[in-house]
């Protein structure tokens, strides 16, 4: 079987367009995911029963549903419904927004569990030391516990980001042109689908391998750093 790679150089600009979409979904998913995940973790650990229960329910629901379905539901039901309420009568291009929202909220449930474990790994003694100095619970959480928890969690948070980067290919189910779908489309049009998909796979492989290597390095540095 002979391979024909000739279509790739000329289509690099198009592929780059797709890569930008992939990277944006990853970046927003990680940032919003960590933000919402932190809130969920704090709610989960709060003495307020209702907040704690709501947070637990959120995490359980999102972790029990396949990501593909979350994307579908956001695409077919939730986002059109919201758009209809907020901007009635307008036809809007919503697929990118849908992907951002779905990934952010889905990832938040995973980040919530990582961050909750991180918070719980900071000892009661540290919490008491903060309280004993006269700080209130919020201050202790923000100034003493969270900085330690997040630092300890950095490698796990980044590993989750790499998973998200790969999972973002699932946006093909809502016809959003990320890197993978651009490659697929180019291959389909030119007639060298196998080559384009192999190429796309190689790109994901290289990026993820490099990123994992960086995380390992960081993990090593962080464990040497003065963090108990």
């Amino acid at each position: 079987m002979a391979f024909d790679w000739s279509a790739i150089p000329g289509s690099l600009p198009i592929l780059w367009q797709g890569m930008l979409v992939t990277l944006q979904i990853t970046l927003v998913g990680v940032l919003v995911g960590i933000l919402v995940g932190t809130l969920l973790a704090l709610f989960r650990l709060s003495p307020n029963r209702l907040l704690s229960w709501l947070s637990a329910a959120y995490v359980t629901v999102f972790r029990s549903i396949p990501l593909v379905m979350v994307l579908f539901w956001f695409h077919l039901i939730l986002i059109p419904l919201l758009a209809g309420l907020l901007f009635p009568g307008q036809r809007l291009e919503l697929r990118f927004i849908t992907a951002l929202a779905a990934f952010s909220l889905f990832e938040a449930s995973y980040y919530a569990e990582i961050i909750r474990a991180g918070i719980l790994s900071v000892t009661k003694g540290q919490f008491n030391a903060g309280l004993a100095l006269g700080m209130n619970r919020r201050q202790v959480m923000r100034l003493v516990v969270l900085p330690q928890a997040l630092r300890r969690m950095v490698p796990l948070l980044l590993t989750q980001a790499i998973i998200l980067f790969q999972d973002s290919t699932l946006v093909y189910v809502i016809n959003l042109d990320d890197f993978f779908r651009k490659a697929y489309n180019v291959g389909n049009t030119v007639g060298t689908l196998n080559e384009l998909i192999l190429f796309a796979g190689a790109v994901y492989l290289v990026i993820c391998t490099l990123a994992s290597g960086c995380v390992r390095q960081l993990h090593r540095r962080l464990t040497v750093l003065p963090v108990k």
Binding site: N128, A129, L131, A132, L133, N136, P147, Q148, P226, V227
Partner: peptide
Amino acid sequence: LPKLRSRVGMVFQHFELFPH
């Protein structure tokens, strides 16, 4: 209580300095 605690110092068995 936070105000009261700010006026009473406490030293722990395991020091509990903030490592970060």
